[in-house]
Nucleic acid binder design. Sequence first.
DNA 1: TTGTAGGCGTTATCAC
DNA 2: GTGATAACGCCTACAA
Lengths: 340, 340
Amino acid sequence: MNTLPSIIDIAKLAGVSKTTVSKVMNNQYGVSEDTRKKVLDAAERLQYTPNLAARSLVTSKTNVIGVVYDSFSSPVYTELAGLLEHYAKAQGYHLVLSSCNNNLETKANYIQYFMGGAADGVILFGSALEDRQIIEKLMNGRYPFTVIENRFEQLDINNIVIRNSEGAAEAVRHLAGLGHTRIAHITGNMQHRVALDRMNGYISAMQDLGLGLDPRHIIYTDAKIGCGAAAADQLLALEDRPTAVFAFNDIIAYEIMDAFHLKGIRVPDDFSLIGFDNIREWMSFKPGYSELSSIAQPLKQMAAAAVELTVKRVNHPDSMPETVMFSPKLVLGGSCRSII
Amino acid sequence: MNTLPSIIDIAKLAGVSKTTVSKVMNNQYGVSEDTRKKVLDAAERLQYTPNLAARSLVTSKTNVIGVVYDSFSSPVYTELAGLLEHYAKAQGYHLVLSSCNNNLETKANYIQYFMGGAADGVILFGSALEDRQIIEKLMNGRYPFTVIENRFEQLDINNIVIRNSEGAAEAVRHLAGLGHTRIAHITGNMQHRVALDRMNGYISAMQDLGLGLDPRHIIYTDAKIGCGAAAADQLLALEDRPTAVFAFNDIIAYEIMDAFHLKGIRVPDDFSLIGFDNIREWMSFKPGYSELSSIAQPLKQMAAAAVELTVKRVNHPDSMPETVMFSPKLVLGGSCRSII
DNA sequence: TTGTAGGCGTTATCAC
DNA sequence: GTGATAACGCCTACAA
């Protein structure tokens, strides 16, 4: 069983020392053009690929950023993944992704894998509350670690924070400004910080506006496929039917829109609707009846910041962890109407 | 600048040799319960994480499968990613993904990165024709490499092949069976094998059925967002208007459906429509007017096979490369009607 | 049951 | 401009 060619093989073939080969491979000065050519030639002939494990063992650097996802279930997530790659590349880093398929143990596994030398830093995307335990257990306080969506400022890690409650409040204020007073909220999975934040934003905005708070107007879901359709039924069954809905995310909102449509209920004529995430851009095949108004997250800036903070920590492991906050903003479609 | 704890640190703290520590870390026999506890304790206190680079340097094994994507632009792709993780995990492998964001050079970069010791094998997903050059250049004939969608049987790599032309033919036959004779095809990006295969399947089925081939009935697109809407316009502008359409993929088909809907043209009443990929399952928020009929790929089996073939090659680097073929199949929605 | 020694492929230091 | 040599952190005979 022959093995992969190493620097030594090249050195032999080119008739030089392995030091010289290494220098050529790393484009370093102090090698004559002649030997450089010889070495490159030998490498080509042997189909040489440098052994990254050996390299990173001695340099203790991989130039890789690892990203851990819960799943790829939303177009926003995958868009973010592409952006992360883009910004990582700009900084000279490879970006590799892993999905734990919503398994907590697997998630810890991947983080450990990256921390164990597969990556110089990790970006964890997701807002599951239980992630805290994992991080507490694994963090050693010096490994570059950045969290997007969640927020653990006490844990010596970087945080990319979206002011979700602010976005939710903006949605509610917009609807209230159009004259709506009975505004319902469809929640996400309450085990996730984003769902809590958006609900809290809804609640406090309702109270601040003096619209009161009808507990029946909060419909709880787990944000899984199909929950929007179910929520639509619940909405229609309400006695004092709301005139507007703020949904945890666009998928739920579109499901509701679709369910309403099938029952002959029109958006925005009968119901005003606002979602979250603004996935419209990726939904070229969205329902045609109405453009959804939605709260958009600044994905590009989030991705750029996540990479930047991670890289900064890689270069200065003893620097303080940072928290960067972004505000989402309302993007108007045509799914809301004034009832004044 | 202190460094990460190593086996040696643990050995010192626990008062044993590094061999013993290594044994404990790998759950090997031949260690007294007493020392094992001492070692585990020391590791815990030091927050020890094994250095994977060092380990893989000596074992020349990473237990990682690397996957390279062009992008995450379709729900089918991301679903496949989750499935790959699932099957890899079942075999004791980590699965890490990278997207080259449709950049050929970046793609080669990631493949090299994986081949350079970051992964025991690589799965390349995508059907860009130009991939061939990359593979030809990088392959050394022993590194486990599996391609999904593309097909390079001469290149000493594993191939997971979907019989795309067969699926296309099935779509055409179904439409013909409903009495359609003027059947149009909206192509994908002609630089991709899948687009070619589906078009060829369409062409040969049309000819086999004796329906002739009107070149104007083939509408070429690059499969990017928005191309379906444009294709819809072209369809409607045709003199001898087709009564049925087979689209390269579901996204295009849904875009067409949407564009038709806005113009008051109904599916399936005025147009019968078949897509490819059957993304319906992920489109809980799809347009409600009609369920799309579509050609579905057996994603689970594809993922399982890709992982299996890759792992097999990892364990037997000198075994022959394999090709596994799958047939897609028509899943009926309600987007086609008989005009007989 | 435990420890010693050698080496995996690379980079870095320091001679020549 | 070039080449020995010593790490990097780990595993694995082999010896004690």
